[in-house]
Nucleic acid binder design. Sequence first.
DNA 1: TCTCATAAATGGAACGTTCCAATTTTTCAA
DNA 2: TTGAAAAATTGGAACGTTCCATTTATGAGA
Lengths: 346, 346
Amino acid sequence: MSSRDKATILDIAREAGVSKSTVSLVLQGSDLIRPETAAKVRKAIAESGYVYNRGAANLRRAQSNVIGMVINDLTNPFYAEMAVGMERTFQSAGIVPFIANTAENPVRQDQVLKSMLEQGVSGLIVAPARGTSPDAFKRIELAGVPIVFAMRRLAESRIPVVAPDNHRGGLLAAQHLIAKGHRRLAFLGGNAGLSVYHERLGGFLEGCAVAGIPETSVLVIEGDTNRRGGMACLDTALAVAEPPTGALCFNDAVAFGTMLALRKHHLEPGADFAVVGFDDVAEAQHYVPALTSISVDTPGLGERAAHAVLKMIQTRTTRAEDHIGSVTLMVRESCGPNRIDLGERP
Amino acid sequence: MSSRDKATILDIAREAGVSKSTVSLVLQGSDLIRPETAAKVRKAIAESGYVYNRGAANLRRAQSNVIGMVINDLTNPFYAEMAVGMERTFQSAGIVPFIANTAENPVRQDQVLKSMLEQGVSGLIVAPARGTSPDAFKRIELAGVPIVFAMRRLAESRIPVVAPDNHRGGLLAAQHLIAKGHRRLAFLGGNAGLSVYHERLGGFLEGCAVAGIPETSVLVIEGDTNRRGGMACLDTALAVAEPPTGALCFNDAVAFGTMLALRKHHLEPGADFAVVGFDDVAEAQHYVPALTSISVDTPGLGERAAHAVLKMIQTRTTRAEDHIGSVTLMVRESCGPNRIDLGERP
DNA sequence: TCTCATAAATGGAACGTTCCAATTTTTCAA
DNA sequence: TTGAAAAATTGGAACGTTCCATTTATGAGA
């Protein structure tokens, strides 16, 4: 039945009455082959259930046309959206990227990177797992494989980064909350192990300082970067002597959690407490109340990162400029109506 | 600087003063090698930035230790959760699966499958894209690569399937709504191109029929399987002469959309209209109101599918039993408190 | 010390492709 | 028709690994 010993280029050659070289050329779409000959070969291929052995091919040539995407958390819609943006770009370049998930686990990440390297990827996009050790990417740099970081950067690394302008996002959020009349502010969720955390918090504090609110009076509460973390943070925030009236959350997931917890405390997000998210995931605009959030153009960043690797591969370099994407404040309902008239949409 | 011509097994051999065969044996963890010799080899490997060339290895042996997961929509949290369940299983088997997204696009799916095949995957889990043609998997079957379908089945295919008991889920939902006192029911979202649609709808209609509600009086409205689709379906549902008072939604995303649309019509989900979802994604329990949904044990199904391929690979077979996972009704708030009276809603 | 069994290490032939250099076929001007 | 240039095709040597059949080293018993 099913030919157990799969067909090779030689079988095709025999079948079509040509040499293996000819078959190889046809496979590569070379125009050195006469059209009729190519047709004969293609016919033989179609009839034989032949599958091209890319491993063998890569052995001979030195490139591999596979690109790896290593993502820290695929169940986080934010990263899933980013990954899809990357895929779109790769698709139009005619290449199929392989995705792997590290679940924020540096050990898993090591395994995954090793596997991708062994597989001979020609480029890599990595959203590093939390707590990645600084030399986790030494092997890859040594191997000279082009790599770009997405979203997160590593402390002392010269690997190019594609990320949103987190600092400015934090700043915009602070300005917005302050313009709404809030003076007692909080920054909820995230933890100091994340470069993104420092950037967002830094921008937020700067915005506060500029408006005359000293850093020390801003309530900063670390926590998990998911719904549960947001809920916990809010509980803590409301327990202090003079609780805040508004907060920037580390990301949208934390913001959703914060809003859920507010309801448990019989406070209505928007009316009694202002909540700003970060990332502007698709869900933000559908939520009730719709979440005011810092939009980072997620798929756009994905595309950008993909273009960067593609270019690095093409130009055979391992260096590239960082790209810091612009951010915008999406004003929705979770900070309530304007206290000072800024003419935003209802 | 970086040795442009990468090290091979022979370089390691020379460095360690042994033969290439010895290095190969060490790499495979063979116990034929004296520990001191193995140590020497390992030292040389560590010092040289050597990367194992799996492509070359696969050329010689016939298996490849890579497994492909082809997912129809990674941005759908449901499928992302399933994928993570699979990954967990593969991880504990020491293998790194490669994930690819098809974005519900059969053409893309073809490319992805071709690429995975060429890469020499030893097994495949596929959640088929909507509208997949029945012979899209002919190549794979011909190549004798073990494959299992997750969640969706294909009309005339003998490929094993791992999926929840959709029929029973539909039945449970109908019983629940009817027990709550609803008589005018609807099934919202999904479309006839999906096997899952027929199964869920079939179970729902059966549940209705058993309770004396004729199939013809159940309002069935097709629509997109996301939030927007749910919103549109509800609008249509409320526009009929005698609108329904409760509905089973094709999946949780549709249910969320339905609840959003209810609010726009000034109806409160749970109080004025009963909503049941399907899949029980993580968000269901956090939503306000918390969504009553049919839980399918998503990660569990993923694990099951992963085990199935693993076993097929091990036993070198291409056949396996279907697995239909049990489902449970998770009662939360979106159907409101029990109605004792069977009267119409005010 | 010698034998012999066993343990450890090795060389060479594959695996399926690409690419180069070489060969054969075709085309066309003289 | 002939010859030479151009076009089309081809054989063989890589690529980096594994595996088999051998060879070489080790150590126990005499």
